[in-house]
Structures are given as C-alpha cells and as structure tokens.
Design a protein around this nucleic acid. Structure first.
Lengths: 343, 343
DNA sequence: CTGAAAGCGCTTACAG
DNA sequence: CTGAAAGCGCTTACAG
C-alpha cells in the first residue's frame, strides 16, 4: 500500500509553506493566482488527496448522519432515502446509508456505527425496539425511527397514517358500490418477522373496520384473512384466498393490507375466472413498485415517502442539536391513487 | 449544539490520565478491572463518544469505500450492494452507499465524495464514462464500475455476460419448440438515458441472434422491436407490441431484453386474448423483482448479483492497494431461471 | 500575499 | 498498571 501523499509533501515539492498549500487547495482568496495554479498542478501530479479525517478533526466539520435500511428485497424505502439524502445535504450533512446486517439484525448494524463518523441514525422498520434502543444508547447515538412495525415506541417515530389511509381506500371501494370487501393481511411471528408485531397491519385493519361501520356495513369476520407467510414474493398464490373463493361467502372486493400481497391475490382471482375489477375490485396500500407491475395496475394508498424521509432527518438533526424530540409517533397522511384494479 | 465530550473530559472527571481512559475504552489488557469499570461508567454517564475522525487520523484506521447507486426506482442493484457490503466488511472496510444525485448525475455525486472519508468508489450503471472518469481523476479517487451501459470502458468493469445469458434463454425458448421469437428492446437516447448507449441491450441482441442462427432459424428483423420509452414502469402497455400483435408476422414467443418490460408485454398479450405460455411464451433478463410479480411469473436469466458486488469490491481494494487492475470488462455468467411464463 | 505555530481528539511507544 | 508526551494531517489566527 503506497504511503499517502500529505500536505507536507506538496508543500515541500512546491517550495511553499503548508499554509499556502492549504489556501491554494481551498478557494481561499488570499493567494496569488500564480501560486494557486502552481500548487494545484503539483498537488494533482502527486495525487494529493486531502485527509477528510484531519480536516474534520481540525474544523469539526464532517457532519454525517446514517440511515439503516432493512434487509428486505422490495425497497419501498428507496424514495424515503432519496428524500432524506436531499434534506441532509440541504442542512450541510452527509447521509450515510447502511444495509441492515442480515444475521445480527438492526441492533448489530447499529453497533457497527461506533466506528463510523456519524452523528445520528435513522432506523427503518424496527421490529425489536428495545434491542435497537439499547444499541443506540450504548454507542451513544441519537436515533429516530421510520415506519410502525412495532407497538412499542422507543424512538421519535415517523410513519404513514395507516389507519386513515386504509379508511380512505376502503371508502373508495364502497363508493364504487362494493359491499363484501375482504381484507387480506399477514400473520406475523413477532419473534422472527422483520415486520415486528405488525402494528401497521393492525392500524390498517382499524381503518377498514371504521370505513365499513361508517357506511353502515357489517364487518364479516370470515372476510378478514391472515396469510401465514404474507411477504414472500416468490409464491404464486395464497391457498387461503383460493379457499375463500371456493367455499367462503361471496365477495366483490379485496383490500390487500400491503401492495405486495396483491400479485398472488390477482393470480388466484384470474385462476378462478373472476374478472378484475368488474366482478371483484382489488386495492392495496403503499404504492410501491408492485402496484405498477401487477395486472391490472393497483389502486392503492401512496405512502408519504418523501415526507417520511424529510421529517425523519429534521427530527434527527433537532435531536443532535440538543432539542428535545418526543419519543412518540408522528403520522403523515398518505394519498389515494386510483388505478385500473378498482375502476 | 452541545460541545462534544472528549477523552480529556472523561480523564478529568475520572481523575486518571488520558492514556488510561483510552485503554479502558478499548479492550486493552493493561488496565485494572476496577479502573476499566469506573472509567467506562463515567464515560457513559458523560455521554462520551470517541471521535472517529481523531482515531482515524491517529491510527490511519478508518477504511471505507463508497458505492454510488443509480437514481432508478427498481433497485436491481440492492443484492449487489448487500454482497459488496459483506465483502468490504470481511476486508476491514466500511461500505458507504450514496444515492446518485438526481440533477447532476453520477459525476456530481462523485465530486461530492471529495468531502467524504472514502478511499475508492464503485459506480453502477455509468452512462457517461468520460464525465465520471474525469470526476474520479479530479478528486482523485480509484474507481471501478458495475454494469455495461456503455460501449466505452474507462474503468475496470464487472458485468453479467449479457450475450451468453441472452443466448441461453433464447435457446431455452427454442427447446420449447418456439420458432417465431420476438425481441423487445428499448430505443435509448444516449444523451439523456441513465442507461447510456445501452451496450447491454446490444449484447443481449447478439445473444438472441446467435441462438437463432445456431438453431438454423432465420432472424426476422420485423420481430426486433424497440420501444420508445422502455423503462417507464407506470405505463400499462407498449403500442409497438399491440401493433405487432395486430399486424405483424405471427409469433410464439417474446424475449424481453429486461424483465421490467415484461409487465406491459404480458398485459398486451392478455388484452389480445393470447394465452401465456401456451400460445406465446415470454422470457426476460435480470431476474429482478418484476419477474416474480408479473403473471405468469417470468422465465429469465438471473444476473450474478452477489458476484458482481463481491468482484467489484475486490477489484477496488486491489486498486487501492496499488495493484494494477486493467480497465476492461470482466463478464460473469448469469443463470437461467425457468418459471411459468415459458413452461 | 506568505509562513511558522498552535491545536483539533485521539493512540501508543516510552518511562516509570 | 498508569501517565506525560509526541504526533497523525490538517486549518487558521497571528505576525510579517
């Protein structure tokens, strides 16, 4: 490994003081044009690359925050990160993105941040709030959370308003004349699921119930179905939905508690010869990629991705600045997006 | 903003020398158990967080490399990053992930790396090799590239073997008895596309031609179709494919040069009442999420995601270590994955 | 316009 | 087992 080229090397090669080199490399005005050019040429020739660590130590000026993204293939968090990145940059901070450690989980990834020059961390979809909270305290590192996978709230948290969103989309189905609306969710194993205890599923269920009740429709519990393995994308159909279509009460709509369940649901409907949306309308929640790829494209509630990222960064920077940020959930409304699956 | 707590603060509070604090915080053996405990307790109480910058400056020990991921929603690079992350960690390096700047593009994002403590960069899907190469030289920062969006090769590059992969999947279609196989690609505007001049599309086309020729089948140029806007996922169908189905020569298979074109193609086939795969088989390339979400699930060639990430990191670390890494393409074979769309 | 010197917060020989 | 001191590579008053 070649020894690194330092300011001193450039200074020596150029025959000027280190201060002059430093000024020439930056855009400091107090250097003659000639010196600046000469120094820069020599620096470039030597392959000089200023030490970010030394500069940061001297100026206190390396400001970075981290975001840990979940180890789940479907990347709904990508627009969140993009917005967080933009917001951080506006505030003079770098955003460092870290994939969650597949074995140790979020807590292990947080531990790893001890050796990274970062001032705070945004954690996304935290299943085990206590373990992650503990890891953050250990370092110690200020943290905020995005998404509501857990009933516990050990972080200042920002999430979509899942209840209101679900209510909106079910109201939309009712407005389309649907009366027998199934709700498909997932059965979560809180021990092992990256989705924790699935608070968001519960909230979306509440929104579903509220919409039905507000319309004077009875909730038929037989129409609320929990898939055993809801978030495995490689599956083609859900046996539970096939059973409903074969033996259950007749339905004219399905609300999928997450978009990614829609692909298997739509396949089951097609296999049963049931046209969508004429006989059965289908809607989802999230507005992630799956909503555009399935056929027909999915009516859904768009998560406020940009605002999730932006708000999380703002909360985190406030925490870093020493402002007290309450450890409670901030909910941001989503938006109904109507596509061919319901109209 | 509260002043940061330093080693000196802890040293003072604990009434011991800074060296002792330093040893107690690390796992240095030469400290008494009692001192270690006491110092750690005080450090924790004070909220002491060692300065990574200072430590890095002192030990030369902060080793990080960067990866810039493209500003495209469909995240096929996610498993690549995950593998790169694991490989970097094995080698004692952090992997920093940076979303590409949406306005300035890759070159602007590379420029931003000047203020990040990173020793090298992996760039993914570089459309304009010259601009990015220049930016890397300016910093200066060793770089390697993943993906083959460009005919030019200004970086040590690793990509899938697109030609062999395409050949494999088209051979599979032929083995299924298909004789009139359409190829759908995209028309790329090299000025504006994030896909550069689309070398990968060209290579996949070559593979298609080779497979047909090897089987003694004539290439019908009318069956090679370039969509005007191939990578817009929000679209429902491609007018070009509707036209082919209505007026063109009859077909019994479609090879989509990228999985994400398959969703609109399958919709067009369904709308035309053409059953898949019985009347027309459909295959893709990449094996990204879209392959699992469309109906029927897609036969495709899986990109060697893990190896792309791993190899890129290894090439980059070799470059950093001062080994010469040739500025040419390393191609890694993909794997045929057969699903319901062809069988 | 330029340079010598102090100091950012650590770690690690070196000396006890 | 513990501490004083040097030094990592910069930037920036301060003095010319």
């Amino acid at each position: 490994m070649p020894r690194r080229v330092t300011l001193a090397d450039v200074s020596r090669a150029a025959g000027v003081g280190m201060a002059t080199v430093s000024r020439a490399m930056g855009d400091h005005p107090d250097v003659s044009e000639a010196t600046r050019e000469r120094v820069r040429a020599i620096a470039s020739e030597l392959g000089y690359r200023p030490s970010v660590a030394a500069r940061a130590l001297r100026t206190g000026g390396f400001h970075a925050i981290s975001a840990i993204v979940p180890d789940a293939g479907w990347g709904w968090w990508e627009p969140v990160i993009r917005a967080a990145h933009a917001t951080a940059n506006e505030r003079g901070y770098q955003l460092l993105v870290h994939p969650a450690d597949s074995e140790g989980g979020l807590a292990a990834t947080v531990d790893g941040l001890a050796s990274i020059p970062t001032e705070g961390v945004i954690v996304i979809s935290v299943p085990d709030q206590d373990a992650v909270r503990e890891a953050c305290n250990r370092i110690p590192l200020p943290a905020v959370a995005i998404d509501d996978t857990s009933r516990a709230t050990r972080f200042p948290t920002v999430s979509a308003d899942n209840r209101a969103g679900a209510r909106t989309v079910v109201e939309h189905l009712i407005a389309q004349g649907r009366r027998s609306i199934a709700l498909v969710r997932g059965r979560l194993d809180p021990e092992h699921s990256v989705w924790g205890d699935g608070l968001f599923l519960e909230e979306r269920t509440l929104g579903y119930r509220e919409a039905l009740e507000a319309a004077g429709l009875a909730v038929d519990e037989r129409l609320i179905i929990d898939f055993a393995d809801p978030f495995d994308e490689s599956r083609t159909t859900f046996p539970e939905i096939d059973r409903l279509l074969a033996d259950g009460p007749p339905i004219d709509a399905v609300f999928c508690a997450a978009d990614l369940m829609a692909a298997p649901v739509l396949r089951s409907l097609r296999a049963a010869g049931i046209p969508v949306p004429t006989a059965v309308a289908v809607a989802g929640f999230d507005d992630e990629r799956a909503a555009l790829l399935v056929d027909p494209q999915l009516t859904t509630v768009r998560q406020p991705y940009e605002q999730l990222g932006r708000t999380a960064v703002e909360m985190l920077l406030a925490t870093i600045a020493g402002d007290a940020v309450p450890e409670r959930r901030t909910e941001i409304p989503g938006t109904l997006v109507v596509r061919a699956s319901t109209s």
